[in-house]
Nucleic acid binder design. Sequence first.
DNA 1: CCTGGAGTTGTCCTA
DNA 2: TTAGGACAACTCCAG
Length: 499
Amino acid sequence: MSTATTLVWFRQDLRTQDNPALFYAAEQGWVVPIYILDDRHPGEFDLGSASRGWLHQSLTALNQQLQGALRFFRGDPLQLIPRLLRDSGIRRVAWNRCYQPGQIHQDSSLKRLLIDQGIEVQSYNGSLLWEPWTVLKKDQTPYKVFTAYYRNGCLRREPPRLPLPRPVNLSLPADLPETCSGLSLDALELLPKQGWYEGVAAYWQPGELGAADRLAEFMNQELAEYQRGRDHPAIQATSRLSPHLHFGELSPNQIWYVASQYPLTTCSEADRELFMRQLGWREFSYYLLYHWPTLPQQNFQPKFDRFVWRNTPQALLAWQQGRTGIPLVDAGMRELWQTGTMHNRVRMLVGSFLVKNLGIDWRQGAAWFWDTLVDADLANNSASWQWIAGSGADAAPYFRIFNPVTQGQKFDPQGLYVKRYCPELAELPAKHIHAPWLAPTALLAECGVILDRSYPCPIVDLKQSRQAALDAFAALREHSQPTEGSASANRGKYISRDR
DNA sequence: CCTGGAGTTGTCCTA
DNA sequence: TTAGGACAACTCCAG
């Protein structure tokens, strides 16, 4: 194989458009695309079950885009890639960077290893608008506050790179040695064996084409109502692009430029900026994870280490299964189970409920989301759970505790969202749907609701548990010590999570 | 080094 | 009914 051939290693960039590694490899000659499933990561987060199902479909789609030339492998990239290069005689490798701490570590080891063997290695930024190490304050330390990071750190520097086109005339050689042909996609065993994934799959169209459709539909149908609708879970007003983004079926750059160039005759400046700001939040999560790699395991604010979480497996199970007796919480948790996603506002609310009303460690919530969300993303998941718990960077103040009844009345006033996922409450009038335990007994009977039988009573008293949380968080304050938040102090160590 | 303004998404009580 | 303030300091960040 000549030096004009590049091994292109796909990871979280499962697309052919705006894919720097693929684009520049194709410019240079032949391309051998590979995917490696590494599900024996030592000290790394394994893919959750929902993500594995999505990945299977996304790889199917990518393989179609690549005319069936994608080669699948399973194992350790540090051993596989050097072997593939040896066996095939290919002397160049390209990939787009990943940003999980374990991946960064693995990639730099691999890069060193390959360069020592005289292999040319090309790595690109394919998944972030701004590289985390380029956005720093004047004193060269990383930001901890979103608004300053986004406004002064990101928006004032040079704009994100423009998206690249799909490579024309992709040259995909077929004549590689037998040992380089890899496995079938099915041999990766990504599809969950249980039937539940079929329900999830019905809601989504994984893959580059599905992602492009979703983006176009969001722009044309939903962006104009974004500000007004995005907080109402019964309405489809959010972009639902997160799983596509997570697997790199489209890049943030593609979204950024489609949005920023969208004519203001159709949407308002406020809608557009609010939406683009969400991409900013994604950047901020990756930024935090990069500069504070312990974000998935350790409280960003060390004073939370003193917090004593309640170990109540039954309450955790009730939360996971959507039978806490709080309709909006249960609706959200059931949406998650049935569709692999959950509306953004409801995520905050079920998170607040788990941490503040049930007093359960945010890591337990993060672990469940990790396993069940099709958009499970280490950066977003960790940063967001720490945000809602109050332990994070620029987090919600501890006294900001969501009341799921009030939130329901505000954002699901008709109870349509609750009714969709809690059909046993469907007959209840809107006035009572968010707090059935307060409804008149006669009315409940009339609507076919038997508390503790057809639908549970609340497993906690909202008012009492709120006060308990306020007291517990206030106690953290009394003997608080100076916090050491230095980036360098925390860097380097990545401890595997106990699952 | 000092200073002052600001900080995603809330709730509850009071007037 | 509704609007405004309290909640609790504390750190961050820019000038």
